[in-house]
Design a protein around this nucleic acid. Structure first.
Lengths: 232, 232
DNA sequence: TGTACATCAGTGAACGCGCGTTCACTGATGTAC
DNA sequence: TGTACATCAGTGAACGCGCGTTCACTGATGTAC
């Protein structure tokens, strides 16, 4: 009795995977809004009605793709960070950034699926929240480790936060890395949004005519942002 | 003989505007990829074939919307900056950021149209380049003014750039603000991408559960980024 | 081990719908004399 | 100022296409005895 038991169950898992793979392939040419169950079925050589044995409807397929994308990049980042000495916090940050960039460049349509414009009429269900949070969690854990090791050198003098911002950052810290000061959490989120802003500019063509190719700018920026947070 | 001469020409300009307005309205519910000429025509009470007197095809309408969006936000930012003392460079930066955020919140679908995922199968023509560059130009002119006035305090010691990055930044400077050091240009682009990354996170729902509402985080970040560039 | 029954993956036809674009046309507006 | 002709905005029918989803079905796989 293996993890996947009967022939039926094994076949089911395989077909499910094939459907998602084909859907991902089509994402590249038509985008999330244009994803068509009929086209996926056609390419797979099955009746379009057959897909309904696997996904309740088009949105359910989209949700599966979104969750897969978050998990894939989340997994990659976690693995990449582990390949770096745990006490080299700046190296962990570098690995974090580089891994996300490599994934985004290799799979721009999956990047757009999760970090691009929302799909009109599609409301992401709660199941996407966990996978989506793997990325911010990985980063903030790195900063937490640096902080508790006394290896973080935040800016002097420490900037002060407004009341609301303090409360928001405190909640993030409480839920993920208790003990880390609010200002550190906040600086970390600045770096995170900078990272995705930069990647979005690169992937969506806003660097054409300036920082194109974007590699050198990316590397420089990663170091500046490490400095902003105070990662040694 | 007014700028718009005959009744025919006046009517033509008005109908053109109505088409674009209705298309913008529909963008909100169906997104750029789902924009339909037939639906626009239907809503306007005209035959769908009639739109072809105004736009060669669907992509031409999309291009017009994109150019309008870039011009609208470009115009707003230029106006907002002029309402601030020219020598208060940090205030100009603040006005720049706040104006873009206000526009993005008020017109999230236009924001997504130009700063979100590219529309599959759509290739932006050259005419969008000029309007698109108004935003970065406005920012870099502010930094240029601060630099030439000796009012910029970039970080000490000045970080050094790789050869490729120096060349890229030098070209940007040459084409827009000759005399500004490459490193200053580069830091400015870090701040610009941070700004759009943060807005994208806010508008596309990535702050839900953390920095939501995003106003306080936004204001704090604007000041930190001013510091990164060295705007006094 | 063999058999009867239950489960369920996959089919194919159908429903009702929407799309972009072309084309020959009509009738109002504009222009040249 | 009046008239003949040219321009062009807007129509309606048509072409050829694709979509999501439902439903009654068949036949292979799985299960209980």
């Amino acid at each position: 009795m293996s993890a996947i038991r009967t022939a039926r169950e094994r076949a089911r898992a395989e077909v499910m995977q094939e459907i998602k793979d084909e859907a991902r392939r089509q994402l590249a040419t038509v985008g999330a809004a244009g994803l068509s169950l009929r086209a996926v079925a056609r390419e797979l050589g099955m009746a379009s009605s057959g897909l309904y044995r696997y996904f309740a409807n088009r949105d359910a397929l989209l949700t599966a793709l979104i969750i897969d994308a978050y998990n894939e990049i989340g997994e990659r980042v976690e693995v990449a960070e582990r390949a770096v000495p745990a006490q080299d916090y700046r190296a962990r940050w570098r690995a974090f950034c580089m891994t996300i960039r490599e994934w985004a460049i290799a799979a721009p349509h999956q990047y757009a699926l999760v970090y691009g414009s929302p799909v009109p009429g599609y409301q992401a269900p709660q199941d996407t929240v966990g996978p989506a949070s793997r990325i911010p969690l990985t980063l903030i854990r790195n900063v937490h480790d640096a902080w508790t090791a006394g290896a973080l050198q935040p800016p002097e003098p420490l900037p002060s936060l407004s009341a609301v911002l303090t409360e928001q950052a405190a909640r993030v810290a409480r839920e993920t890395v208790p003990g880390v000061p609010e200002v550190v959490v906040t600086l970390t989120l600045i770096a995170l949004t900078q990272l995705f802003g930069m990647l979005t500019f690169e992937l969506f063509g806003h660097f054409v005519g300036s920082m194109d190719p974007a590699g050198p700018f990316f590397e420089f920026t990663v170091e500046r942002m490490a400095g902003l947070i105070g990662l040694s």
